[in-house]
Each structure stands twice: as structure tokens, then as C-alpha cells.
Design a protein around this nucleic acid. Structure first.
Length: 141
DNA sequence: GCCAACGTTGGC
DNA sequence: GCCAACGTTGGC
């Protein structure tokens, strides 16, 4: 099962806001980058991803699950881009920071470090397990 | 607040 | 189809 990472400015869409949506989840809209779009299209229902705060916080704060697969994004006037629906499934009791990832040999090569501008990224199994462990979360699914 | 990296746009 | 100019993102 593939894993992912969703990047967001907490001022725009924060982990708290995502959690308040509960089991209903929220469409991950506004992606306007083709590589990010490809990642969205590859997502399957039930797959999980990290929730990352960019900007001031710069840390992975939680885990989300894909509950709705790729569909057109109504907020895109060109109709080229789409979205998936994600719901919060749990906190990372101990958030993993970008600074930490940079100095960690297992995480130093992850997309978050090497290509920070990509807003929706793949995460390898190895990285997934490692971050879950560092963050004090279960790595299930 | 600055700057590097990247994507997009538009003139030719 | 190329490339310079510009806008945006995001780390520092």
C-alpha cells in the first residue's frame, strides 16, 4: 500500500481544521501542479498519508486517510485538475520536524527534503515506518 | 524580508 | 518551439 504526504500552510488549512471535519473528511482541492496531480490520481481509497504544516511550523503533525478517490476539482476553471477526499485518522503525538528529517539518514532523501515545493508527495514504506516511530504513532496501514 | 527553485506566460 | 520575464512557493 502506497503512502503519501500532504503539504499545507496552517494559516490556510490546518490540522485542527482537518480534524474538526471528522469522519466526513474534506476535499483536498487547489492542487495546480501536474506532478501533484499524478500523485492524487494514483491514490486508492484506504491509503494513508502524512499531514505536513509548511511555513512557520514546518513539521509533520498527523495522519490522514484517503476516503474518496480522484475526481474533478470544481474550483479549477480549466477543468484540468482534480482532488481526493481525506479524513484525519490520528495525531503524531510527537511531530516530526523538517529540521529533524534533514539530519536523519533515513529521511534525508525523502521528497519533502529534496523537493519541498511539491504539494502532494509520495512517501516510501521505509520513510513511513520511520516517521511513525519517531512521531510515536502506529504505522498500521 | 530575502532569495533560490520552479512553473507559467508570452513574444518572436 | 525557444527562451526571457515574471509570479509563486517555501525555507532560511
Amino acid at each position: 500500500m502506497a503512502h503519501w504526504l500532504f503539504k499545507t500552510e496552517p494559516e490556510t488549512w490546518s490540522w485542527d481544521m482537518q480534524k474538526k471535519k471528522g469522519a466526513k473528511g474534506e476535499p483536498w482541492s487547489g492542487v495546480r501542479n501536474h506532478q501533484a496531480k499524478r500523485n492524487l490520481m494514483a491514490m486508492k481509497k484506504g491509503e494513508r498519508g502524512f499531514f505536513y504544516h509548511s511555513g512557520k511550523a514546518r513539521e509533520i503533525v498527523g495522519i490522514v486517510e484517503v476516503i474518496g478517490e480522484y475526481r474533478p476539482d470544481p474550483s479549477d476553471p480549466t477543468g484540468k485538475f482534480g482532488l481526493v477526499v481525506v479524513k484525519a485518522v490520528g495525531d503524531l503525538p510527537k511531530p516530526v520536524t523538517l529540521a529533524e528529517a534533514k539530519t536523519d539518514p533515513v529521511l534525508a532523501k525523502m521528497t519533502l527534503v529534496t523537493f519541498s515545493r511539491l504539494s502532494v508527495q509520495p512517501v516510501t514504506d521505509k520513510e513511513w515506518q520511520h516517521i511513525c516511530k519517531l512521531g510515536g504513532a502506529s504505522s498500521r496501514a
